[in-house]
Structures are given as C-alpha cells and as structure tokens.
C-alpha cells in the first residue's frame, strides 16, 4: 500500500492507521470489515480527489478548527492527501489565478464541495467575492459537485450568528434544494465529523444516513441532556446559580441557559479536539450550536428560556405570555365576581 509509505514518513504505524479506519467505520455503524474500504478510501485519496472549499459570511473558525486538529490525525492525512483546489484562507494563489482554479475544477466535475459561512438573503452585496455575489458562486459551484457538505452553524439552517444580522444570512439548503446536502452544524465545525463524512463518502460513494434536518445520524441522533456528565446533578436538583460559588462548580447548568435538553449532538460522547474537552465539561452551558434554532431562537445564551419563534428574527417569551394570561384570567374572574354581586344586590333593591 502506497499510503503506508506516506504514513511512515509521518511516524504513524500500520496499526494506528487501521485503528483510525476502524474508528471511522464504527461511528457510522458499519461492520468492521468495512474499515478495509475506509483504508482504500484513504489510499484513493492519494489520487487526490478535488475539493473546493467556499467561504461565505464566516469567521474562518471552521477552517481553523480543522487545521488545528492534533497531529498526526486522520484529519491531517485526509487534508494532506485531498487536493484542495480552492480555499480562501489557505490557498497560495490569489485573484485571477485562484478563480481560474475553481472554474477549472468545476469543469472537471466530481469534486467534493465544502461550504463554510452563510449566504446573505437581504442583499447580495453583503458578500461579494471577485466582484461576484457569493450566492451565484455557490450555485455555480454546486452544479457539478459529487457531494455538498455544509459545515458549521453558519452554512446550515438559519445561518447561525450571521443569520441574526441585517444581512439575514441563511444556510446552503436554503438555496440548494435539488441536490442532497450533508449538514454538519456546530460552532465551529467539529473536525472529526467532516473527516469521517468525507472518508465515508469516498469509501461508499454515497451520503451517510441522515435525519430530517440532513444531519448524519452518526453524530446527531442522541440528545445531549440524556448523556451529559452533569446529569446526576440535574436529577438531584443541583443547579449552578452563581458563577462565583466554587461549591457549585460541578452542578447542572440548566438555569444558566444550558440548551442540552433541546440539542441533538454526540458532544458528550465524542469530545472536541481529539478528546480534549467539550463545553459542558469545561463549565460552559451548551449553546445548542448543532441545532437549527441556534443562534436566534436560543438567545440569550446564558438564560433559561421557553419561546415561540414567530418570525425569522422574532421570538416571544412564553413565560411572560403565560403569566400575563394567568393575570388576565384571574383579574377577569375577580371583576366578574364583583359585578355579579353588585347586580344581585341591585336586583334585590328593585
């Protein structure tokens, strides 16, 4: 196997490599024999399937997250072996040369398209690249892609943080309806998810099994709240209410706005940055970044809320609504009762 030579150069032995491939097979629930296909996929990747990586309204955090994976990881192998033809943050070329590379790749067809960042819907001018609206670039690049992967919260659903700005950024599925799009939401992209999805696609030639929101079930089928390390404190009714109280350090973060009870993600099982940590374990309430409700419906981040979403950027707080309703009902009953008494005594006088 050619790939082994390459790996030796990177000081990974055959055994580590097999383990990595088996791990990728395992997350998608494939039989172990399939990990051989994953190995072939990795080897095929040596033939450098082309990748176009588009960035819309983003912070390049997803790219950073991927590039900063601890080495040498599957991520690095795949990154080094894929032929990334176009990536605004890391490509050496610029201007005409860079755009030419993208156009040539589109002509070749059959590439993997990764989209990071949202697409403005309010006005095309919010995001222009090489004097072209990003929206048009996306549509034109999507046409010949073998697979489209939308990474990060901005490129999925209602556009993450840019979705809450006047540009009204929206995710890829908002624009591309005739082709399957694999959504990998989270803020930023979790590198292991992209790598596993690309490997799976290269090995099987198709998209992994997905839920109703186009998220691979392998990563988004469990509820965070059901698997949370702080769940015991939740059950015992121990909640963080004061950030400065060190006695509460391990407590459940529900009252500090944790969105774990509403968020489908494998964060509790597969920690970030190759198992370093994840939000809740680090003491930050989950902000629900892998959900379509992020960021609008889930804000404010550090407050518990129950809301109805009545418009793209408008929510009503049901607690306020409910209390008002109860107040009106109570007051109505009292007023009515008094009126009744008054009319009764009137009747008697007559």
């Amino acid at each position: 196997m050619d790939i082994l030579k390459e790996l030796v150069a990177k000081e990974i032995n055959r055994r580590d490599f097999t383990k990595l491939c088996a791990a990728v097979a395992a997350v998608f629930g494939m039989p172990k024999a399939f990990s051989k296909d994953i190995a072939f996929a990795a080897e095929n990747a040596m033939k450098k399937p082309a990748v176009i990586w588009l960035e819309g309204q983003d912070c390049a955090g997803c790219s950073e997250s991927l590039l900063a994976s601890i080495n040498p990881s599957v991520a690095e192998i795949v990154l080094d072996t894929l032929s990334i033809r176009y990536h605004e943050t890391i490509m050496a070329g610029s201007g005409y040369v860079a755009e030419k590379a993208r156009e040539d790749t589109i002509k070749e067809g059959g590439y993997v398209l990764v989209v990071e960042g949202s697409i403005p819907t309010a006005d095309d001018r919010f995001c222009m690249i090489a004097e072209k609206p990003f929206r048009e670039i996306l549509l034109e690049t999507a046409k010949n892609a073998a697979v489209i992967i939308a990474v990060g919260s901005c490129a999925t659903f209602s556009g993450g943080i840019p979705g809450a700005t006047p540009s009204k950024g929206r995710g890829v599925t908002h624009f591309i309806k005739d082709k399957p799009v694999i959504n990998l939401p989270s803020c930023p992209l979790k590198p292991s998810r992209l790598v596993a999805t690309v490997m799976y696609f290269l090995a099987s030639g198709k998209a992994p099994e997905m839920d109703k929101y186009g998220r691979p079930l392998a990563f988004y089928s469990t509820l965070l709240h059901e698997n949370c390390p702080r769940r015991g404190h939740f059950e015992r009714g121990e909640f963080v209410t004061d950030w400065n109280d060190s006695g509460q350090r391990e407590y459940c973060l529900l009252l500090k706005g944790c969105k774990g009870p509403k968020t489908y993600t494998d964060c509790a099982q597969v920690w970030w940055n190759d198992g370093a940590n994840f939000c809740i374990n680090a003491g930050a309430p989950c902000s629900g970044c892998s959900q379509p409700e992020f960021y609008n419906v889930f804000s404010p981040l550090y407050e518990k809320q129950q809301t109805f979403n009545i418009g793209p950027n408008t929510t009503v707080n049901l607690d306020t609504v409910g209390r008002t309703m109860m107040g009106v009902a109570g007051a109505g009953v009292i007023v009515h009762g008094l009126g009744r008494l008054a009319s009764k005594s009137n009747d008697e006088e007559e």
Binding site: Q291, E293, Q306, G322, M325, V328
Partner: peptide
Amino acid sequence: GLTMVRSIHFFFMWVMVCFIIVHHY
C-alpha cells in the same frame, strides 16, 4: 423540533391554568 414541542407543552400548561381558574369560577 424538540424545542417547539417543549414550548407547546409548556404553553398548554398556561392555558390549563387559565382554564382551571375560569372554568371553576
């Protein structure tokens, strides 16, 4: 989505509170 289901479940609680007040009165 689950967020909406939670909100609906929660909202109906309020409706029931109001119902109990008015109905029994």
